[in-house]
């Protein structure tokens, strides 16, 4: 179990992490969701030991690891750009850790070869060992980077946007494979990403990092349906967040959130009176294939989105620039108390 306790990191005047409390349980696929610049990579670098926290402690299975040299921490790190050794072959890349680690390096060449081949087989690259790392595709490089990390049997594997450099097709395939590989090994993965779909698909648990803190850490369905604060809801890219005062019913003060797919649209005045509603101007629509997204502007300028599934269309024909009433079931809204 990896535990971060009140971890802070500042760069000059800028605060990257501000008192992060975070737990990655044993045998878990943890996805960490955050916008770019939110400090995701910094968090991973602190755990791996490439940098040290200004404050707070990091411990693994109860023992503190902050302050330890990174090469003795026994933590796997898969880099976004893969960071393969350009002068070594695929097999030599994978065997590097076994052969050259300071703690308990292997000297038996047969064992090194066997374990290298087993790792390459695990990631589906059997027979690629002799290739140069510049002679393989991006997806294959990603697998080499993964095999190179996994072969050392680290106590936890950190993945820094591991799918960011891959094309969409490859990305969805690697998603499944990463999950399957992790389940086979039984080691915890901490996967950092900026994509909410990736985080929700991959994670047994998803944590949201924003403003230098963990905003919420929950099971994906829980997080998606019950975001605990406006910041978490914003990162899911499925919630409209607006001021409660805009609505017809008295919903109190402060920000509230309603999911894109739980808002209905009616002509002005035609909204059912028992449902809270608000007035907004239709801006434009965006056709995405199986779904269509409509954009509205509320009276105070807030941008609202409504998603319509083509199989069950429920929106009237919309005219750009015209006002409509957006309404939703009273139990569909999430109300947040405290800061937005």
């Amino acid at each position: 179990m990896l535990t971060l306790n009140q971890v802070s990191r500042r760069y000059g005047g800028a605060t990257a992490l501000d008192g992060v409390d975070f737990v990655v349980p044993e045998n878990t696929y943890m996805a960490l969701l955050g916008a770019s610049g939110a400090g995701k990579t910094t968090l991973l670098r602190l755990i791996a030991g490439f940098e040290e926290p200004d404050q707070g402690t990091i411990s693994l299975n109860g023992a503190r690891i902050d302050g330890q040299p990174s090469h003795l921490r026994d933590i796997g790190f898969v880099f976004q750009n893969f960071a393969l050794f350009p002068h070594l072959s695929v097999a030599e890349n994978v065997a590097f850790g076994l052969r050259h680690r300071a703690h308990a390096p292997l000297t038996n060449e047969t064992e090194i070869k066997d374990r290298t081949e087993a790792a390459l087989e695990l990631v589906g690259l059997t027979g690629f060992g002799h290739r140069g790392v510049s002679a393989i595709s991006g997806g294959q490089r990603q697998r080499v980077a993964l095999a190179r990390t996994l072969v050392c049997e680290p106590r936890i594997v950190l993945l820094d946007e591991p799918l960011g450099a891959l094309d969409a097709n490859l990305r969805s395939r690697m998603c499944d494979e990463l999950k399957a590989i992790r389940e086979r090994l039984g080691v915890s993965f901490l996967h950092v990403t900026g994509s909410e779909t990736e985080a929700l698909t991959m994670g047994d648990q998803v944590a949201v990092l924003a403003n230098g803190r963990i905003m919420q850490s929950d099971a994906p369905d829980m997080l998606f349906s019950h975001p605990g604060n406006a910041e978490a809801a914003r990162h899911l890219n499925a919630w409209n967040i607006f001021d409660a005062g805009l609505c017809s019913h008295d919903l109190g003060q402060g920000p509230i959130a309603v999911r894109f797919d739980q808002i209905d649209v009616s002509d002005p005045g035609a909204a059912p009176t028992e449902r809270p509603s608000l007035h907004a101007t239709y801006l434009t629509g965006e056709f995405n294939g199986p779904t269509a997204l409509s954009f509205f502007r509320a009276a105070d300028g807030t941008l609202l989105q409504v998603v319509d599934h083509l199989s069950q269309p429920r929106l009237p024909d919309l005219v750009e620039g015209q006002g409509y009433d957006l309404h939703f079931a009273a139990d569909a809204l999430r109300q947040f108390h405290g800061a937005a």
Binding site: G49, F50, H71, F79, A83, P86, H100, T149
Partner: peptide, 25 residues
């Protein structure tokens, strides 16, 4: 690429080993 050196560190290599196996070549 500095991340190549960090990767070697992460895989458990000491600075001397990283110099011999990565930086020098």
């Amino acid at each position: 690429d500095i991340s190549v050196i960090e990767a070697a560190r992460d895989l458990g290599a000491s600075f001397g080993t990283i110099f011999r196996r990565i930086i020098l070549p």
